[in-house]
Simulated scan of single mutants.
Amino acid sequence: MSTLLRIDSRDYYDADTFSRIREFADGKQTPFVVIDTGIIGKQYDAMTEHFPYAGVYYAVKANPAAEILTLLKDRGSNFDIASIYELDMVMNIGVSCDRISYGNTIKKRKDVKAFYERGVRLFATDSEADLRMIAEEAPGARIYVRILTEGSGTADWPLSRKFGCQNEMACELLVLAKELGLVPWGVSFHVGSQQRDIGAWDAAIGKVKVIFERLKDEHDITLGMINMGGGFPANYIDPTNELATYAEHIHKFLVEDFGDDLPQIILEPGRSLIANAGVLVSEVVLISRKSQTALERWVFTDVGKFSGLIETMDEAIKFPIVTDRSGELEKCVIAGPTCDSADIMYEHYSYGLPMDLAIGDRLYWLTTGAYTTTYSAVCFNGFPPLKDYYL
């Protein structure tokens, strides 16, 4: 058996932060996630420090809590919006329309009209039908086209297949946008969430450069913006480079292709801003073995794929888990509480938990501030959505 990794909270949080979260969690009924907004503020400041030339558009889908949106609004963030419901959330806390991008390429006509009527003028697209609808419902709007990118093999949570179009179509759409009275403004891409290969940005920026040059040379269209999406990492089990390293290399890639006079650059971080701020607290419901000679324990918790941990699908995101037990580690299967057999978080990954772990013990899932509350089911098996608290 391979050596099992013992998780230490001190590798993820300073002692005071984790103690404060633990103290707050005491006595509360599990499962729930506790999010330290101070960490989010520090992450945002780091993003703007390392990318001083870029506009930050927070990906609201990562966690739309009013506490987070308000903090980021006050910090100066813009917002990447995926639906009319997210638009309501940010505008209800006083975000102005010039700080909003409608970044979803799949949208209803009535929603495009509503965004436009409320003042939003920046829209993503990746298809002709969507572009023509925007031209009809949002005349004169700025358009950016999302392109397909590689990088799915090195991103823990790939995003490239569903969204985007090939370079040839991107050029055609931007030319058509001008013909339809829209403003062909830029190109966007997303290299995949939790992208550990910094070179994925190099390849994508190279594709964008070709589109910029072709439109300028062949159609006299000068684009003004590159939307580089998200993809920056959070601190899970698998190691990644520091944000400063990403920033250094990405800036080099941009300068190599576009020189020192860069177009407007947009970033859409979600995970990298808020994941590290969250600790999900759960309880061990059952520990069992499938036979008297089975080598692996099954550890069932009161949180699972349908209550916030969907990103463990295919064991893609490997959350660090801390317990109060200090016994020898033993490989186990970790599963959720529902009646769905897909509700297994880790079965193949060599995840070790202490042998003295007992029913009723708490598990602390670290780095769970992003994509937990938003992925939580409403009432599967009657379980309520994941509770969330903000410090």
Rank of each mutant, 00 (worst) to 15 (best):
A15I: 10
A15M: 06
S19D: 10
R22W: 06
P31H: 00
G41S: 12
E49V: 05
F51D: 02
F51V: 12
A59L: 02
V60R: 00
P64V: 00
A65F: 06
G76R: 03
S77Q: 08
I81M: 05
D98R: 07
R99S: 12
R99M: 09
I100Y: 11
S101I: 11
G103H: 00
N104G: 02
T105M: 00
R109N: 12
D111A: 14
A114W: 04
Y116T: 15
E117T: 15
R118Y: 08
F123Q: 12
A124E: 10
E128T: 10
R132V: 13
A141S: 15
R146V: 11
I147G: 14
I147C: 13
E150W: 09
S152P: 15
L159D: 07
N167F: 03
N167W: 03
L174R: 03
L174P: 05
G186H: 10
I198S: 11
A200D: 08
A204K: 11
R214Q: 04
E218C: 08
E218S: 12
E218K: 15
I226Y: 03
N227G: 07
M228V: 05
Y236L: 08
L243Y: 14
A244W: 09
Y246S: 09
A247K: 15
F253M: 09
V255A: 14
F258K: 14
P263Y: 06
I265S: 03
E268R: 06
R271A: 01
N276K: 13
L280P: 07
S282Y: 00
E283H: 00
L286Q: 15
V303D: 02
F306R: 02
G308C: 07
I310Q: 05
E311D: 05
I317F: 00
I321T: 05
D340S: 07
A342T: 02
M355A: 06
D356G: 08
T368S: 15
T368V: 11
G369A: 12
Y371P: 07
T374L: 06
V378F: 09
V378E: 11
P384M: 05
K387T: 00
